[in-house]
Design a protein around this nucleic acid. Structure first.
Lengths: 260, 260
DNA sequence: ACCTGAACACCGTTCAAGT
DNA sequence: ACCTGAACACCGTTCAAGT
């Protein structure tokens, strides 16, 4: 149960941009001590910018101002706004992946593993509440994945974690479905309560994307690639019924054990 | 366990706009047989437009084209684009509320009631997959609600349904939390698998909104108003832990009963 | 090598003007 | 009464030009 390491893509903690906590007015600020521009700095600043001004405030022009530069300068390092959003998502994902708490206690049970992953994701969700919804909303790398969580990396981590602990393929895939649905529902609601204005959740239409599971670019994730078929199956209704049934049971128990 | 009726706000079924199912190119279409403009028609057409072109395609100018009219004409009937989005959400909510399946079998158990509500919401989510994410994303009418689901109407329905069946306030509120988190998680993921590009989920920031539970406009929802205090409490972490625990148990059972 | 000004095709929204 | 043209302040993005 180990955690994959990732190339440092300009993590927030490394070169955290100093942005004052004063009046949040998108242009009325000191443009930050003008570090040399770089992709990593732009992405990190974008996250800070979104946490201050919201996703609606993230325009190339306003982000340029946060960096003390004209908007056009950004295009030397970032091909497009969409690519920037993807890079921001990756930054959050990497922060979960590289969380020291994730590595601690190496080989424990799958339960501990899943709990650490869940809490790791929750931690970054609460740390970047206004950026986090992007994780659930950007076009997934693997649209055939059901549910199509953004990070194939997480899926791979989750599946291998369970499989190494003796899970069968089928059960591991079912567990993944339950896990991601639970995690997304909880955290999106929790984060929205914190006041995130969740920006365009740009899921991609099935027409424009290979919904036919062409395993392009998933080769570096062997488990995901191997289980691709099972992962693409649509069990939405059955899972909906099952989760609903489970919820009803939990509510019934709450009702019975209640002392009025 | 009855369903509240609502003023007909130009429901889709009534005056469904004829839009051909041909090539989806935002302006290259017959501008529809030019019915007299009205707020109801605009909202209904907007939903159809979003289902064809996605939320990104919903600009005042393109929607104008779908109606055979210049964008500026819309402002006679719709104060702003944001107001239009809210009206679209309301249209979906009313379609759940007025679902004939919801009224059938009047006074049954709370289990049946919750199941009917869940399936009713799921039905409109699958019917309008590209519009549905707005329900989870528009600024909630009651931001102090945890989780802040859009429709106070639904919250009221849910709570009264349970209370009439003998639930205590506390358990009813807990049940609401579990229900909304489950429903949102499942349906957002299911709908995203259908290829919805979930548009700006514009949750509202706590600063700009009365996070202090000033019960403005909730007076027509007596149960929500009465339970406002309990509904505003933040139990996010405890609920997260509990749901996670429950998930782990379910996975463990799946694992045990698995025959490899 | 790195940034900027001007330009293009888009936005939402306002308002005086047309029918 | 209802719609439109022109205008304003914004977008993302490109590209020739400046340093």
């Amino acid at each position: 149960l180990s955690i994959r390491d990732s190339k440092d893509d300009g993590g927030l903690d490394g070169q955290l941009v100093e942005v004052s906590t004063k009046t949040p007015t998108p242009g009325a600020d000191q443009p930050v001590a003008r570090q040399p521009l770089s992709r990593g700095l732009i992405v990190a600043t974008a996250v800070v910018h979104v946490e201050r001004f919201g996703l609606i405030g993230l325009t190339m022009r306003q982000l340029g101002q946060s960096l003390g530069v004209e908007a056009m300068a950004l295009y030397r390092y970032v091909p497009s706004r969409d690519d920037l959003l993807d890079a921001m998502v990756e930054l959050l994902i990497d922060e979960v992946t590289n969380d020291p708490d994730m590595d601690s206690g190496q080989a424990t049970s799958w339960q501990h593993y899943v709990q650490r992953l869940a809490h790791g994701v929750r931690r970054v969700a609460l740390k970047y509440p206004r950026t986090f919804p992007l994780v659930a909303s950007r076009p997934p790398e693997a649209p055939w994945l059901r549910p199509p969580l953004r990070s194939v990396d997480w899926v791979e981590m989750f599946l291998t974690g369970l499989l190494e602990d003796g899970f069968s393929d089928d059960v591991a895939v079912s567990a993944y479905r339950g896990f991601s649905s639970f995690l997304l529902g909880h955290l999106l609601l929790e984060v929205s309560a914190l006041g995130a204005e969740v920006g365009p959740l740009d899921f991609v239409t099935p027409d424009t994307t290979e919904t036919t599971g062409g395993a392009y670019g998933v080769r570096q994730f062997p488990t995901v690639a191997r289980l691709q078929h099972k992962l693409s199956e649509d069990h939405a209704l059955a899972e909906f019924e099952e989760s609903l049934e489970n919820l009803l049971e939990r509510i019934a128990i709450m009702k019975q054990t209640d002392v009025p």
